[in-house]
């Protein structure tokens, strides 16, 4: 399959602190990549560098051959093509679910409001939230908010979707409903890079697992070899920290 996203030698530093150290990654179209690692290992920063929410000191990120970080002037036109969902506080609290979803398509893509609404309603229906279209974010549960945040990102027809610990702030009983949506997106062939602590989910959804430690990719591979036959001690130690026997 063809490559859609290329990250080469990406280096991110805060003053003297190196957060990401010459990271390389090539993402194919339709591929689902799951990044795991201890907190503070740089995995979230890595996602944020991809759509240029963070400046990078070395290397480059290119989408379909076009360099997007370090970005030139047209940062927003590139970001249209990369969707991102965060841990929480994604939704705009002063807008209803429907207004949240159509804002960017109408203002950025200049799509007709009626058409945008039609698409939004279809997406809401798909994630079981059609009845919430006129609710405000504070009237939704955490899981519902995250489902809306995902479909809001889909409204822009992104070529790559970045999910940054989207269930980390949720109560355990709400994690499933959000991850089910992600799994259905993976099945329809969306390109996604996912940061998560939900290893069972990672195993189910990933085409390729990546373990980041100390700002470097330490190990990567198919879920099978990654979980069952980890090669490095660091990954073994990391995986062991999740089991209790």
């Amino acid at each position: 399959m063809e490559e859609i996203l290329n990250i080469s030698n990406l280096t991110k530093r805060y003053d003297d602190l190196v957060v990401l150290d010459h990271v390389n990654l090539s993402v194919k179209k339709g591929e689902v990549i799951v990044l795991v690692g201890t907190s503070g290992c740089g995995k979230s920063t890595f996602l944020r560098c991809i759509n240029a929410l963070e400046k990078i000191q070395e290397g480059k990120v290119s989408l379909d051959g076009e360099v997007i970080n370090p970005a030139g002037g047209k940062l927003n036109t590139v970001r249209e093509r990369i969707g991102m969902v965060f841990q929480s506080y994604d939704l705009f609290p002063h807008k209803t679910v429907l207004q949240n979803m159509i804002l960017a398509p109408v203002k950025v893509k200049k799509i007709n409001k009626k058409e945008a609404e039609k698409e939004a309603l279809a997406l809401l229906d798909r994630v079981g939230l059609l009845s919430k279209k006129d609710s405000y974010p504070h009237q939704l549960s955490g899981g519902q908010k995250q489902r809306v945040a995902i479909v809001r990102a889909l409204m822009m027809h992104p070529e790559v979707l970045l999910l940054d610990e989207i269930t980390a702030a949720l109560d355990p009983e709400m994690v499933r409903e959000v991850l089910d949506v992600v799994i259905s997106l993976a099945r329809e062939g969306r390109t996604m890079i996912i940061v998560t602590h939900e290893l069972t989910f990672a195993r189910a959804v990933a085409d390729r697992m990546i373990f980041i430690d100390g700002g470097k990719i330490v190990e990567e591979g198919s879920p099978e070899e990654f979980f069952n036959h980890p090669k490095t001690d660091r990954l073994k130690k990391f995986l062991d920290s999740f089991s209790y026997d």
Binding site: R48, N51, L53, L75, N76, T77, R79, E80, R81, I82, G83, M84, V85, F86, Q87, S88, Y89, D90, L91, F92, L103, A104, K107, V108, K109, A149, R152, A153, M156
Partner: peptide, 17 residues
């Protein structure tokens, strides 16, 4: 919250928007 800005930027909105 900073994410309000970031999620807006992530949707392709300009700083002005």
């Amino acid at each position: 919250p900073a994410i309000q800005y970031e999620s807006s930027y992530s949707l392709g909105m300009t700083t002005f928007q």
